[in-house]
Amino acid sequence: MIPAYYKAPRTLLAILPLCFLALFFLVPVGYLFILSFVEGNAFGGAHWTFTTANYTGMLGDRFYIVIAVRTISISLIACVLNVILAFPVALFAARLQSVWKSVFLTIATVPLMVSNIVRAFGWVVILGRRGILNSVLQFFAPQMVLRQHLFSIQAICFGLLTITLPFTIMFLTNAVSGIDRKNIEAAESLGATRWGVFYHIILPLTKSALASGLMVVFFLTLSAYVTVTLLGGPRYKTLVGFIYDYSATLRWPQAAALSFVLLGIGLAFAGIVQLLVSERKK
């Protein structure tokens, strides 16, 4: 038996990080949740009276619905583009020999270590009024009127793909590499075409990785405040933009409520994706 004096410090090992995370993760998020149900005052404080107005006010307002739809659409577009791009890349990478594959994965994940601000700024450099795209355009068509390419949905999508693609590529490459090559050859020998192999073998065997990739993409794009602000400008605000504005203008309960709406959207998406994945498994 392990003596008691030895067991106690062991439990302490668990208690220490547990307390820290409870105090600085669970409690603040819980506090935010409570805050979303109280009436705010103009000074960043709150009258501590219960209300659901922070939520119901949004539901009744067409303005918020438009923003929510825009937010969700942008995230969904990012998801679709991610799948379209990352799957071929993963199929390509999975066939590389081991040395080249690790070189590939290293290069593919380098962007993850670069701050989002730098990656968004990269698109400002390309798409800005004096950016590279305009320089190139001017070189080929000098009389053309220069347009601002920033502050558009396309710019937002580019920026979001820069942030999310490394994740999906990493997830899918690992998943596709994990498929036994013999499974694919077996399917081929049984008469499956390339598309048949993809649809019947590769897709089902990678769908859980695909699902987690999509959830990461969705959450990341949902809360990509910096990217959307820099590349979308004031015209294409999404929900996070309003959360930030409310917090800056001291409308804390509204900011809190909007945060949970955002979380709710993300969880709903995650739920739908999980449902799709597990249903097909049966």
């Binding site: 013999k182 499974n183 077996a186 081929e188 020998s189 049984l190 008469g191 019947h200």
Partner: peptide
């Protein structure tokens, strides 16, 4: 391979 009509039992079986 997909057009050859060969039945193959793979090493390790390669069952899906």
């Amino acid at each position: 391979s997909s057009k050859r009509n060969f039945g193959i039992v793979f090493q390790g079986f390669a069952l899906f």
